[in-house]
Amino acid sequence: MDLITQADILREEHPGCGVEKMYKTLKPQHLGRDKFCEIFMDLGYRIRTIKNYRRTTIPTHLNYPNLIEGMMVTRPYQVLQSDITYFDIEGKFYYLVFIIDVYTREILGYNVSNNMRKESNIKALKMALKQVNPSEAKEMIHHSDRGSQYGSTAYKRILRDAGIKLSMGMKAQDNAFAERVNGTIKNEYLNLWHINNLRNLQAKTKKAVEHYNTKRQHDNLKGKT
């Protein structure tokens, strides 16, 4: 199979895969990174990033401390981060919740809905906790922004019952890992597919998460928050 065909197959699975990440994935023989990038940029494989502007945080009056500031994350299931983002389909907004493991960067839980109510976050949290051993959960921190969904009684009860500590940041940089995943899923997958309704968005999000978790190349962040 020739290199361009391999690149096209990769782009179909991961439409926002940049040329440098494409090089790392395909590992072409007898072609260096710089030359590969030059050739494929000339062939039109450049990615255009779409900026996101809609606010998705409705702050809660509750103020929990930032427990992960300056922390070095050294193992899986030590810190979870969560955030909400939106997706626009012909002027109608839908909302996506992701919960990630900071150390592995794996998306453990997610949900897609047509509103920003706490139920969507709770579904994502329950999905994530199904993958966590109860003994590990008792040593875990859940970090997010100060969105009202994370401060809801029902959400906090699930965390408390699992023995998970609640941590909140005051600014976007405090939740950088989760926000980066939002951008990756939207800019490398969803924004580049044709999506015309909620059911289609849910199916495409599932496809994107599966590829992100199992095939996408990840840069080494060394687990530092």
Rank of each mutant, 00 (worst) to 15 (best):
R54V: 07
R54D: 05
R54C: 01
R55A: 11
R55V: 12
T56G: 06
T56H: 06
T57G: 09
T57S: 13
T57H: 09
I58P: 04
P59D: 12
T60R: 15
T60Q: 15
Y64A: 13
Y64H: 14
P65S: 07
P65K: 06
E69I: 14
E69H: 15
G70A: 08
M71F: 14
M72C: 13
M72G: 12
M72Q: 15
V73W: 05
T74D: 12
T74R: 09
R75Y: 05
P76R: 00
Q78A: 10
V79C: 10
V79F: 10
L80D: 09
L80P: 11
Q81V: 08
S82M: 09
D83T: 03
I84Y: 06
T85W: 07
T85C: 10
F87K: 00
F87H: 08
F87M: 11
D88T: 06
D88N: 15
D88C: 10
E90Y: 10
G91E: 07
G91D: 08
F93T: 08
Y94L: 06
Y94P: 01
Y94V: 04
Y94A: 02
Y95E: 03
Y95G: 02
Y95L: 07
Y95A: 02
L96H: 04
L96P: 06
L96F: 04
L96T: 08
V97G: 02
F98I: 09
I99L: 13
I99Q: 12
V102N: 02
V102R: 00
V102M: 05
Y103W: 14
Y103I: 00
T104P: 09
R105Q: 12
E106D: 13
E106M: 14
Y110V: 01
Y110E: 00
Y110T: 01
N111R: 11
V112N: 02
V112T: 00
V112F: 04
S113Y: 08
S113D: 14
N114L: 03
N114T: 02
N114Y: 01
N114C: 07
N115S: 05
N115L: 01
M116Q: 13
M116P: 04
M116W: 05
M116D: 02
K118A: 12
S120M: 07
N121F: 09
N121C: 15
N121T: 12
K123N: 06
K123C: 05
K123M: 05
A124F: 03
L125W: 06
L125K: 04
K126Q: 14
M127L: 14
A128Y: 12
A128R: 12
A128K: 11
K130Y: 10
